[in-house]
C-alpha cells in the first residue's frame, strides 16, 4: 500500500501542528514562570515561610511579577528567600518595599506578596534585600481563639446565673419581669409618659409657631444681640441710670428729711403749714392789702388827670407813638 502525496501533506501538517502546539504550551507555561524573559533577583529574610516552596508566585501589589527561586535556611531563626522578578518591574519596585508570605485564597498555594513601602524610596537593584513582614500564623490565631473561647465560657456561665436569677424573680430586673402589678403600673406610667410627650410636642409646636410669627430681624432684641456699639451705649446708659438712681435716692432721703421737718412744724414754712392762727392773720392782712391797692389805683388815676402831672403822661404816649412808627418804617 503506497503512500500518496496528499497523505504526506496531511502527515506533515499533523506533525507541524502538533509540534507547534507542544512548543506553544511549553512557552505559555514557561512564560508564566519567567523562564523566557529577563529577570533580576531580590532577597528577603523571614522567620517563618509557612510552607512556601520554590516556584511559588511572587506578587507585587496583586500582580504576578515573578517566582520564588530559592529558599535557604541561614540560621535557626532566619530563612532567606530569593525571588526572580521580571526585569520590567525593576523601575516599579522601590527599596522600601515589604515582602510578606501569604496564600492564594483560603485553600490556595503559598506566595509572596511584595507591598510598596510608605513614602518615596530608591529604585531596587539586582541582588538587593528588602525587608519582610511575618504575618500572624495559624498557631497564633488558634492560641488567641483558645483564650477567646475560655472568656466566652466564663461569660456564658455568668449569663446562665443571671438568667436563672431573672427567672426566679430576684433582683430589680427579676421583679420587673415576674411582677404583673409592677408591669401594669409601668404600662400605665408609659402611657402617661406618652400623653405628656404628646402634649409637650404640641406645646413646642405652638411655641415654634409663635416664635415664627415674631419679626425678630426688626426687634430690639436682635439689635441688642447683634450690635456691639448699641450694647456699649446701653451699658453706658445703665451706668448713668445707676448713678442717677443713687443721686435720686440721696435726694429722696433729703426730701424725706425735709418733709419730716415740715410735718413736725420746724422752720418758717413748717410754721406756715402747721400754725392755723398765723394763717388766719395772714389771710386778714392780705385782705387789707387788697383794699389798699384798689385805693392806690384810684389815687394814680386821679394823678394822671391832675394838671401838674398830666404833661408827663402825654410825653410818655408820644414817645411810644414814635417808636411804633419807626418800627413800621423799618419793616
Amino acid at each position: 500500500m503506497a503512500t500518496t502525496t496528499s497523505q504526506y501533506v496531511r502527515l506533515g501538517f499533523f506533525v507541524i501542528a502538533g509540534s507547534l502546539l507542544l512548543l506553544a504550551m511549553a512557552y505559555l507555561i514557561g512564560n508564566d514562570q519567567n523562564i523566557f524573559r529577563p529577570t533580576f533577583r531580590i532577597t528577603s529574610v523571614f522567620k517563618n515561610v509557612n510552607g512556601l516552596q520554590e516556584g511559588n508566585n511572587v506578587r507585587y501589589s496583586g500582580i504576578n511579577v515573578g517566582t520564588v527561586e530559592a529558599i535557604v535556611m541561614e540560621n535557626d531563626t532566619s530563612i532567606r528567600v530569593t525571588m526572580a522578578i521580571g526585569e520590567d518591574m525593576l523601575r516599579h519596585i522601590k527599596g522600601n518595599a515589604i515582602a510578606m508570605v501569604g496564600s492564594d485564597g483560603l485553600v490556595g498555594s503559598m506566595l509572596i506578596n511584595i507591598l510598596p513601602g510608605e513614602g518615596p524610596g530608591q529604585p531596587i537593584r539586582d541582588g538587593d534585600e528588602i525587608s519582610s513582614f511575618s504575618r500572624i500564623t495559624t498557631q497564633d490565631m488558634l492560641t488567641t481563639l483558645n483564650v477567646t473561647n475560655e472568656n466566652a465560657a466564663l461569660l456564658t456561665e455568668d449569663l446562665l446565673e443571671v438568667t436563672r436569677a431573672l427567672r426566679k424573680g430576684s433582683g430589680v430586673l427579676g421583679k420587673l419581669l415576674n411582677d404583673s402589678l409592677l408591669a401594669g403600673d409601668l404600662k400605665e406610667s408609659f402611657h402617661n409618659l406618652k400623653i405628656s410627650t404628646d402634649q409637650s410636642r404640641q406645646a413646642v409646636t405652638r411655641l415654634n409657631h409663635m416664635i415664627g410669627q415674631w419679626r425678630l430681624e426688626e426687634s430690639a432684641l436682635t439689635l441688642l444681640m447683634d450690635d456691639p456699639a448699641f450694647a456699649d451705649q446701653l451699658r453706658g446708659v445703665a451706668a448713668r441710670l445707676d448713678s442717677s438712681g443713687r443721686e435720686i435716692n440721696d435726694l429722696t432721703q433729703r426730701l424725706n428729711g425735709l418733709v419730716g421737718g415740715l410735718q413736725d412744724g420746724e422752720g418758717t414754712l413748717g410754721l406756715l403749714l402747721r400754725d392755723t392762727a398765723m394763717a388766719a392773720e395772714i389771710r386778714h392782712g392780705l385782705k387789707h392789702l387788697d383794699s389798699g391797692l384798689v385805693k392806690f389805683d384810684q389815687n394814680m388815676e386821679a394823678l394822671q388827670h391832675n394838671f401838674l402831672t398830666r404833661g408827663y403822661f402825654r410825653k410818655l404816649e408820644r414817645e411810644r407813638e414814635r417808636e411804633r412808627r419807626a418800627e413800621e418804617k423799618n419793616r
Partner: peptide, 15 residues
C-alpha cells in the same frame, strides 16, 4: 517511506 506511512496511519488516522 514505510516509517512515514506508519506515521500517517497511526497519527492522522487516530487524530
Amino acid at each position: 517511506r514505510e516509517f512515514l506511512r506508519q506515521c500517517y496511519q497511526m497519527g492522522n488516522r487516530s487524530l
